[in-house]
Write a protein that binds this DNA or RNA. Sequence first.
DNA 1: AATAGTATTGCAAACGTTTTCAGAAAAACC
DNA 2: GGTTTTTCTGAAAACGTTTGCAATACTATT
Lengths: 343, 343
Amino acid sequence: MKKQSYNIDIFTVAKAAGVSAATVSRVMNHPELVNPTTLKKVEKAIRRTGYVRNRAAQTIHGRRSATLGFVVPTVNYSIFAELVQSFNDTAADLGFTLLLATHGYDLRAEYRVLRKLLEHRVDGIALVGLDHSDDTYQLLASQAVPVVAAWSYCETSRISCIGSDNREAGRLAAQHLLSLGHRRIALVFPPTHDNDRARGRLEAVETALTEAGIEVPAAWRVLSLYSVAHAKSACLTLLREHQGLTGLICGNDIIAQGAISSAMELGLRLPQDISIVGIGDFAGSADMHPALSTVQIPAQQIGVQAGQYLVETILGLDPRKIVRRKIEVALKPRATSGRAVAD
Amino acid sequence: MKKQSYNIDIFTVAKAAGVSAATVSRVMNHPELVNPTTLKKVEKAIRRTGYVRNRAAQTIHGRRSATLGFVVPTVNYSIFAELVQSFNDTAADLGFTLLLATHGYDLRAEYRVLRKLLEHRVDGIALVGLDHSDDTYQLLASQAVPVVAAWSYCETSRISCIGSDNREAGRLAAQHLLSLGHRRIALVFPPTHDNDRARGRLEAVETALTEAGIEVPAAWRVLSLYSVAHAKSACLTLLREHQGLTGLICGNDIIAQGAISSAMELGLRLPQDISIVGIGDFAGSADMHPALSTVQIPAQQIGVQAGQYLVETILGLDPRKIVRRKIEVALKPRATSGRAVAD
DNA sequence: AATAGTATTGCAAACGTTTTCAGAAAAACC
DNA sequence: GGTTTTTCTGAAAACGTTTGCAATACTATT
C-alpha cells in the first residue's frame, strides 16, 4: 500500500528495498551501474513507497536543476504562444522543465523576475529581445549561466541571440506596400521605448518610406498597445478621420487584427479600399478571413533553436562563447493587401 | 568589484560583512530580527558580492520552494492565454514563480510532467479540467500538496475546482441558436475523450437539441482539433457539402474562428446565411469582425482565483478540504448569430 | 549598583541528495 | 586453486540554506 509520502526520502526507499541510499540514488541516475536484480528490487520499492525524488536536494548538490528559465513580456494573445510552446516542447524533450516569468514590457520587472529564476538555479535562461536594463545585463554577466536572447537578431549583441532581424521585417512590410503603389501610408505601432523589436521595425519602415520620398504626417503615426481591442479603437479613429489613406503598416499581427476589424466595421473593403500588413505571422493569421498579409517571423524555429542551444551549452563544457543565429523573415503577401487605388 | 559568483554563498557574504551566516540568512528572511546597522552592512555585502540566494537549499531545508506548478494542455493560440497570464500574475504578486508544463491533451504525458513538477517540490499545483488519469489522481493524493483543477466546475469533483460549468456553457450556446429559430445545426467539436470540458459542452448541446426535437445527422458532427487551420478545412468540407445548414456550434472560439473563416471564404454572409457560435470568449473574440457570438468563460477570474486559492491553502494550515467554486458563464450574443432564414 | 528583561548574534544540526573511495563478492584468467 | 580483474555495493562527506538554542550585550527597573 502506498504510504503517505510526507517524508519519503531515499533512505526510506533504501530500507524498504534492503539496500543503501547510495544504491537507490544510482538506480535513479546511473541504472547501468547496478545489478539487474537489485535494480528490480529497488524499482519496486520506489513504486511501493510512492517516492518522488527531490530535485532541490539534487540541485543543491551541484547537479543540474533540470529547469530552463524563460522570461517573456506576456503570454496574452498568441504573440509569444508559438515561441513558448516550441521552446517548452524542446526543453521537455531534452529533460528540462520550464520556469516561466512575464514582465509586461517593463524592464525593471524583468530584472526582478530574472533574479527569481536565478535564485531557483535554472540551468539556462532565455529572454525575449535585446533591450534589457543594465542591471539585467550585469546580473547575467556575473552568473555562470547560459543565456540566449530569443526573437531578435543583432550582430553586435552583448549576449547570444537567436532570432530575426526586425529591421528587415519592417523593411519588407514597407516595400511590400510601396511595390503595390501605396504612398499614403499610416503606421500603427506600440511604444518603441525598451522594445528593440518594435523599434527596429518602425525605424526600418520609416527609412524605407523616406527613401521612397514619402513622408508620414504625425497624425498618421498611431500608438497602440498589443491588444486587439486597443488597436481597433485606435484605428477606428484614424480611419474615420483620414480618408486619404490607402495603406496601413502594423507593428505586429495582433495590432493588424484590430486594424482589419476596424476597417471592416467602417465598411472598407480589403484590399480594394485599404491595404493592411502586419508583422509576425502568428498562428491563425494565415487562416483568418481575409488572410492577413504579413512578414513571417518563424517563431517555432526560434523557440526550438533557442531551447536546443541552451541545452547544448549546458551539457557541453563550452566556453561562454557568444553565438548569433539569424532566422530569416519572409514576406507573406495574402489577402489584406493589394494595388493602391489611383489618387 | 563584483566577484565571479561561481560559488558566492551565504558564508562568503557573511565574511564580507563580518557577521555569521545565520545573520545573513536572517537579513533575507526575517530582517526585523536584525539590528538596523548590521542590516545595512549585510545588505551592502550582498550587493558587493553579487550574491543570489539559492532557493534549492532553502527548499531542501523544508521551507517553501516559492513555486507554483501549472499543467496546461497547450499554450498555442490564445486558448489558455488569459488563464495562464492571470494565474501567473497572481502568483507573482504573492511571491511565487510559475513552473509551467504542457501535455498536448495527452493524459499520460500529463502524469509525467506532473511528476516532474512534484520533483521540483512546487508548493501548489493547478491543472486544467477534471479528466485525469488514475495515476495522476493517486499521485496527487499521495502528496501533501495543495491542488486545484482550474477551468471546470463539477460538484462531485475529487479535487478542489475553480471554474465554469461546461454543460451550462454548451446549453447556452445551443439555446441561443434554438431561440433564433435554427433547426438545421451542425456541431464542430474536438475529441471528447479525456477532455471533460469538450465532453460536457457537447453533451449539453446534444441534450438541448434533442429536447427541442432536433436530431443532428452524423454528417453534421464534425471533429476538429484545436487549431484555426484545422477547423477551417473541416468546416469548408462541411459547408460545401451540406447547404441546408443554418447554424454551427463550435467547441471553442478557436474552432469558431476557423468556421467563420471558411464561411466567409465560401461567400456566406454572417449571420444572414449562417449563424456561428463559439464557446470561451477568448481575448480578441469580441473584437474580430464580425464579432463572435460566444459563451463567455471568465478565464481571467478563474486564473486569479485559482492562484489565490493555492497560495491561501499553502500559507494557511488548512486541512486538505475540498473547495469548489463555480464561475458563471454568460452568453455573449454578437454579430455572428442571427435569426434563421425560413426553410 | 545589582537585577531582570530584551534585543541581537553565533553555533551547529538538519534538510535529501550525489559521488568518491574503499571494500566485498563474483567472474575471469592461468 | 590461487590470483587478478571486474562488478557491485555501502559509508560518509559535501552541497547551501534555516532555525532552535545558548550566549552575549544592551536597557530598564529597582
